[in-house]
């Protein structure tokens, strides 16, 4: 089995009385395209926001590339710790060696129940909740459901700014142009990237003057410019017509092949999801109701009840 790059364990996100994500566990392996689907309001984007550090989860842990990046976090003004299910498990700051893979449910349960040498932070208040920029720095880049390009910038600078994080020079060198070499190299990399995604001919246009489909492409290119290991796409086909969706499906496949990229995506277009995903997780009311390869999901009773049955009628 290939290496496990993203692992979400019992993630719970509570807003006041609403539990937007409830005990979500999932994992993404290197080189896979994994889809997260579910009806409107199922908590898909919230799950994304937990993974990318926009929200600190009430409970649970997110591990990226073997290292924990987010874990349970006191919520609200009273700094209350979550008291629900599994709430004692994630005060540890790292995954101890020897934890069995999550698919092996029995072994995981046995491991959780057994006595272990836990890490020194057990029971401490040490909080692990980095800001989104720190998580992007570790190699996780995302796009947004409602396109968020920098509107006063050209296509080229939009991608170039994403390279800012990978700078090795400080403010002083930047002002006095001692970083020319690095800057030149970054510009060439950006140009190369734009060539690959097919936006080279419009690189001096304002980002917002592009047609919708190209703006989506640009957002993906911008995310790729941060040199990620994992790409998170939040509804990349939202608002696209069938033709554009088809192109996008091809494009996502190309990205996986060209960049050896692992991709996690949220999507509503079922044909796109079924076409390119290796595995699918289905959320409903914040809870994981099914997971598996596309064929399994298509035939899963609960999924059809919650989602596909309605969606199929609407789409056909």
């Amino acid at each position: 089995m290939s290496k496990n790059i993203l692992r979400v364990e019992n993630a719970t996100m509570q807003f006041g009385g609403v539990v937007a994500v409830d005990n979500l566990s999932m994992e993404v392996n290197e080189g896979e395209i994994v889809a997260l689907i579910g009806p409107n309001g199922a908590g898909k984007t919230t799950a994304f926001n937990v993974i990318t550090g926009v929200y600190a989860p009430s409970n649970g842990m997110v591990t990226f590339d073997g290292e924990p990046i987010v874990r349970n976090h006191p919520q609200g003004k009273m700094k209350k710790l979550y008291k629900g299910e599994n709430s004692t498990m994630y005060t540890a700051a790292y995954v101890p060696a020897g934890r069995p893979p999550m698919e092996d449910e029995e072994a995981t349960k046995a491991w959780n129940d057994a006595e272990h040498e836990r890490d020194p932070f057990v029971g401490s208040d040490k909080v692990l909740a980095p800001t989104p920029d720190k998580i992007t720095e570790r190699g996780m880049a995302r796009t947004f459901q409602n396109i968020r390009l920098w509107k006063s910038q050209t296509v080229f600078t939009n991608v170039l700014i994403a390279k800012h994080m990978r700078r090795t020079h400080g403010l002083f060198s930047a002002i006095f142009r001692l970083n020319r070499k690095e800057e030149q190299q970054q510009r060439e990399e950006v140009l190369q990237l734009l060539k690959i995604v097919g936006l080279e001919d419009v690189k001096d246009e304002l980002a917002t003057s592009l047609p919708y489909g190209k703006q989506r492409r640009l957002e993906i290119a911008r995310a790729l410019a941060t040199d990620p290991k994992l790409l998170l796409l939040d509804e990349p086909a939202a608002g696209m017509n069938p033709q554009e969706t088809l192109e996008l499906t091809k494009f996502i496949g190309e990205i996986r092949d060209n960049f050896k990229m692992t991709i996690l995506l949220i999507e509503h277009h079922m044909d796109l999801v079924m076409d390119i995903s290796d595995r699918i997780y289905v959320l409903d009311f914040g809870k994981l109701i099914a997971s598996g390869v596309p064929e399994e999901i298509q035939n899963n009773e609960r999924v059809i009840d919650a989602y596909l049955g309605v969606a199929d009628d609407a789409e056909d």
């Binding site: 926009v54 920029d133 947004f144 994403a162 800012h164 930047a174 002002i175």
Partner: peptide
């Protein structure tokens, strides 16, 4: 002028245009 046209200046403009996107692209707000 040198600052504004440097890589830092570009990041400032990114923060002005869209703070959330800037943070998601690794700019420490």
């Amino acid at each position: 002028v040198l600052l504004v046209n440097s890589t830092y200046g570009r990041s400032f403009k990114a923060i002005r245009d869209d703070e959330i996107a800037a943070e998601a692209m690794g700019i420490n707000l």
